[in-house]
């Protein structure tokens, strides 16, 4: 095929682009995590002294060390925020699965024309600004907010949810629900109805058919949805920042604070690298699963 090398050429442009703007920057983050803070602009040292030539490069590498990482492990704040990030993401993923599955399953049971409209309704918030959707919850959750107005009308006690971990969970579940529902819906909707008939024919009640056929066959969707939510949630910034309290520890927030407030760029980088190291396995899993699904669709 003569066409091969040409499409290969076409691939080169985005490949180079991603190499420069996605892959290479990670090396910079890794490098920076080995540097020290400095009162300079940019606020880190060492920097390569190109005028000194080879000696400058050598001096640069000699000055790199793991001091920043050592500093992170000594400070219990970082470890706590690392663990609590994983905790938030894992619990929220679990809640999302429990809430998202019935929604996706319910959608898949409607007639085809209705399904299109329902899908649209689920996707619509996803197109709406993330920031605005999180902001909308502030108005609901704040002490004199809509939730409490509603509760007081029924004589129920007020809830102070804003700036608590509960608010963060609500925000995470709310913001990521479409990401959980969509992959689940995709596998459930495709499911061959004759499999359910076969299960019924072989003696399954509806509930048994669900657990023996529908659910196991939807596991790829469960995996995709869980990964699609879990990974970005670990590094979530906007939700803990706007809905969480001062005690809410999450890595995204930590990086942001180190970077913007403390101007400790090496620490921010080291936290980012630690987070990335944790997420590498789920990210690879996600990539493999996506590739597999695409191969299957071929």
């Amino acid at each position: 095929m003569k066409g091969r090398p040409r499409t290969g050429l076409a691939a080169l442009a985005p490949f180079l682009w991603l190499g420069v703007f996605f892959l290479f920057p990670f090396l910079l983050v890794a490098k920076l995590s080995l540097s020290d803070t400095a009162l300079a602009m940019p606020p880190y040292a060492p920097r390569v002294d190109w005028s000194a030539g080879w000696a400058g490069v050598r001096a640069f590498f000699a000055a790199l060390d793991f001091e920043t990482y050592a500093r992170l492990t000594r400070d219990s704040l970082y470890i706590a925020s690392y663990l609590s990030s994983l905790m938030f993401a894992a619990v929220a993923t679990g809640i999302l699965l429990v809430i998202g599955y019935p929604i996706a399953y319910g959608m898949s049971r409607f007639a085809a024309s209705t399904r299109q409209a329902l899908l649209m309704a689920v996707i619509l918030p996803f197109w709406t600004s993330f920031l605005i959707r999180v902001y909308a919850w502030i108005a609901v959750l704040k002490p004199e907010g809509l939730l409490n107005t509603f509760l007081s009308q029924f004589g129920l006690p007020e809830l102070n949810l804003l700036n608590t971990d509960t608010a963060v969970y609500i925000g995470l579940v709310y913001a990521y629900l479409p990401f959980m529902v969509l992959p689940l819906y995709a596998v459930l909707e495709k499911q061959d109805q004759s499999l359910l008939e076969a299960a019924a024919d072989l003696g399954c009640t509806r509930t048994q058919a669900f657990w023996r056929v529908t659910f196991p066959l939807s596991l790829p969707g469960v995996g995709a949805g869980a990964l699609l939510c879990f990974i970005p949630m670990v590094g979530e910034f906007v939700i803990p920042d706007l809905l969480g309290g001062s005690g809410t520890l999450m890595l995204g927030k930590t990086i942001w604070t180190e970077f913007f407030a403390n101007r400790d760029w090496p620490a921010a980088s080291a936290v980012a690298i630690a987070m990335l190291a944790t997420l590498v396995i789920p990210i690879v899993l996600y990539q493999r699963q996506q590739t597999k699904m695409i191969e299957a669709g071929r």
């Binding site: 490949f15 991603l18 190499g19 420069v20 703007f21 996605f22 892959l23 290479f24 920057p25 990670f26 910079l28 983050v29 920076l32 990964l227 699609l228 990974i231 970005p232 670990v234 590094g235 979530e236 910034f237 890595l251 995204g252 990086i255 942001w256 970077f259 760029w265 921010a268 980088s269 980012a272 987070m275 990335l276 997420l279 789920p282 990210i283 996600y286 990539q287 996506q290 590739t291």
Partner: peptide, 20 residues
């Protein structure tokens, strides 16, 4: 490189691009 940015926390993407 195509799939990773889809799920990568934005904070990491932002930080790495800034450093670039």
């Amino acid at each position: 490189m195509i799939y990773a940015p889809l799920v990568m926390p934005e904070v990491i993407l932002g930080l790495s691009l800034l450093l670039l």
